[in-house]
Design a protein around this nucleic acid. Structure first.
Lengths: 238, 238
DNA sequence: AAGTGGTCTAGACCACTCC
DNA sequence: GAGTGGTCTAGACCACTTA
């Protein structure tokens, strides 16, 4: 009873296989923690090539619904771990995508050694000088997000001469400093001091914060803290 | 000069192709916005099957680094949109994974019609009764996250008799109510009133909030608001 | 030792879309 | 109309892991 009525004229798509397998998981025919037939058997049952089954099961595994191990086979995850994908766009385009007019103003630019914890986070010698930037992005003339950033000139020498008053470091780095990987931390903080004024927030208002560090191999490129104006939310789907 | 010296005894992996293409993008040999050779040419250059090139390029496209369209070919994205994957585990396992001892206490359970905005969000008739839950998850005996949830008994009849004092709705639903898709909203809010007391937070402290609505097809299953204790952060990588 | 998923190949057809 | 990516097939070898 596994195979749907096959139309021999059209090959079976991997999406069809994925849907069929998903249905059998959700109907408890294959219960949580239980084992699924191997790829070869499924391919025979569904009348398709093993590669097609493989593609379907790989997709379900990427989604966190099943777990696959060589020799041990494929199992339904007892506790599925759903994955949500977060898009991290350039701030200017993010604002435009929300239907608002983006604006940008450089507040400060200096060059100095970073605090000890930042040097440690970036795996740098404490004495190394970094470029320090503060800038404010606005949407429809209202504060949107405060960008506070350290750039490692050893990783990106051109940054020393870039005109960050004309283009945000956020955008300049996307264009000029490709990174191999990065860390992302999402958190909440209370508005204090100058942040309150810059973001037009009430004293103590809850603000959404994204901290991001990016690397090219073992070399740290930049560390950025984005502090969003009150009310900011990030939406995605499961 | 495209192909690396091929070892004829070992096939070329798609990871190799991906790395090679990535290198040519980051070196600006293929500049942002520029076009990449088509799959057939790349396969010939690298001495592998087109399917291998396809797998490599698909991976780069999924990562947001290139853009592919039939007939139009493959282009380097001018403004790469990096994707971060967020894991959404069961709260109890999340706490355990952080090396702490998870605890759980049901605070309240009622059944009543939801507020108008919630009924609208769940696409329900305003008069439909929902199960309303409030529960507190703790880590090492300290408050971790407040779970406030509406469950649609029309979608999950068994929920009416489930013992949510013994198992959190978060976990029960993962086990008993598979969903097809969901929405996720990440935001920040200030602690007020009872939340302050329950989460052991200072009045007005910034709290990280996750709102989640899940569906099975067109039927809403549940809506949950998770309000985390002060200092909570979510980490991931790019 | 053997079973399972992971991947590559060579070839083919198709869907989409730009010209 | 024609070029490009999307996908399927059938077969093969291999890596990993567990029994």
């Amino acid at each position: 009873m596994a195979a749907p009525p096959a139309d021999p004229t059209r090959p079976i798509s991997w999406q069809t296989i994925r849907a069929a397998v998903l249905a059998r998981i959700q109907s408890r025919e294959w219960p949580p923690g239980g084992q699924i037939p191997n790829e070869a058997d499924l391919a025979r049952d569904y009348g398709c090539a093993r590669a097609t089954v493989n593609r379907a099961l790989r997709d379900l595994a990427d989604a966190g619904l099943i777990e696959r191990r060589r020799r041990a086979g494929t199992r339904v995850r007892a506790m599925p771990v759903r994955m949500a994908t977060l898009e991290i766009p350039v701030i200017r385009l993010d604002i435009a995508a929300r239907g608002m007019v983006p604006g940008y103003r450089l507040l400060a630019r200096t060059q100095c050694p970073p605090p000890a914890d930042m040097a440690r986070r970036l795996s740098l010698a404490p004495a190394a000088e970094l470029i320090r930037l503060r800038a404010l992005h606005s949407a429809d003339e209202r504060p949107f997000v405060l960008e506070e950033r350290w750039i490692n000139p050893a990783a990106v020498p051109e940054a020393a001469t870039a005109d960050f008053a004309a283009i945000s470091a956020n955008e300049w780095l996307v264009l000029n400093a490709p990174f191999s990987h990065g860390d992302l931390v999402l958190s909440a903080t209370s508005a204090t001091g100058e942040t309150t004024r810059l973001l037009d927030a009430a004293e103590g208002a809850a603000l959404f914060v994204i901290d991001r560090t990016t690397w090219q191999g073992a070399v740290a490129i930049t560390d950025a803290r984005l502090t969003y104006a009150p009310g900011h939310a990030i939406r995605t789907t499961l």
